[in-house]
Write a protein that binds this DNA or RNA. Structure first.
Lengths: 211, 211
DNA sequence: TTGATTATCCCCTAAAAAGGTGATTTTACT
DNA sequence: AGTAAAATCACCTTTTTAGGGGATAATCAA
């Protein structure tokens, strides 16, 4: 009996080629496509998939959100995340949401097929080339990002949205002094000398969502 | 006689599938790969290509730079740019550098093969699905980005780097009043209420390079 | 050459952020 | 129950930005 994979990916180039690689391999697998998160979730209801290959950057939803929803509805489905940009916090969040593997689009075919085989065989957690190093923090880029608390990230978003300490204080029902404290801590943690630098860092590293 | 295409693209998934699509089509074309800009430029010297399929986001060089260099050395080679993100200013810059076509990775196979056929037949300028609309400004995203001058973008970079008006003034040998004027104009143009908003916009839209 | 844009410069006031130095209360974990 | 981390609040000073108002050269294209 053959297994079934759902490819959730908005780039036809990528999804079609993934299909080809998989069907051309010695794996006995059939593939279905979904070009966005909504179609993907709809597709899950009608079929019984063994694995979802999930792009992080979907047009209508964050891949992390998708993973969360899919895993809550169908805990048995394995999820292999695929992404273009190697961002440490994204990988971490995905794995927190229960993803079973993570590969980069810079991976070669063997890495991809290997990942599928690994995960379908029941072993937990496949990390593709480059991802392990990323998590270890050995990788050059995005290794030295500080840990921030829930409250800090909340305030960070509001700062990036252009709210002043006063406006943030009103919105969160706290004192401006408190907001100011958090702001200063953020500057410290990110080693930023002012708000401009702070925002540049967090936006470019994808620490906050820009919509 | 068959024609020759160079695919400059760092994602094996994409480059291998492009090759397949092309060789499987009725076009009589051979493909070579280069996984980064340096290899791509080296490759140009040893062969005579008809077309370069060029990814905008290369690990070692900006696609726009690559286009500039390639076109200056080999003016006859056609260039078809491919990108994941549909950013208006990127498309415009590419076309300024002499690119002969532009398609998005969200394009389907017909669009890609169609683009290649169009450009190789000698017609100028192929714009894939979604790109035309982008240039017209009809597209939802990134359509309302203001025009900024050379000086303004210079100051914008320094603002995002965390320099104060005073520091910028010293660096550029101008008055702080002048820097302040430019800063205010930038806030106006981007409809940003403060520096945080301004930086978020320009970083997320890729208007300044973050390194 | 004339008009438009760009870049430059100046002043004033008010608001906000940055830098420093504290403290208290919650929360979460062991 | 005890401790560490997080979140909260407070005050003071200085620097920087934001929001107004203007003005004058320089550049560039019609």
């Amino acid at each position: 009996m053959s297994q079934l994979i759902l490819i959730v990916e908005d780039h036809p180039i990528v999804s079609e080629s993934l299909t080809r690689f998989i069907t051309d391999s010695d794996l006995n697998i059939k593939c279905l496509h979904a070009s966005n998160a909504a179609k993907g979730l709809a597709c899950l209801n009608g079929n019984s998939f063994d694995l979802i290959m999930l792009d992080i950057n979907l047009p209508d939803m964050n891949g992390i959100e998708f993973c969360k929803i899919a895993k809550s509805r169908f805990p048995d489905i394995k999820i292999l995340a695929i992404t273009t940009v190697a961002q440490r916090h994204v990988v971490e969040k995905m794995l927190d949401q229960g993803a079973d593997g993570f590969i980069l689009k810079t991976s070669d075919i063997d890495d991809i097929i290997g990942g599928i085989r690994h995960i379908l065989s029941g072993k937990q957690l496949y990390l593709g080339k480059g991802v392990k190093e990323l998590l270890k923090g050995i990788s050059q880029e995005n290794s030295d990002l500080p840990m921030i608390t829930k409250r800090e990230s909340e305030i960070l978003k509001l700062i990036a949205d252009g709210l002043t300490n006063q406006e943030i204080a009103i919105q969160l029902f706290i004192s401006t002094f408190t907001v100011d404290s958090h702001r200063k801590n953020l500057l410290l943690k990110f080693n930023a000398k002012n708000t401009a630098t702070l925002v540049k860092i967090v936006v470019s590293k994808g620490i906050i969502d820009v919509t």
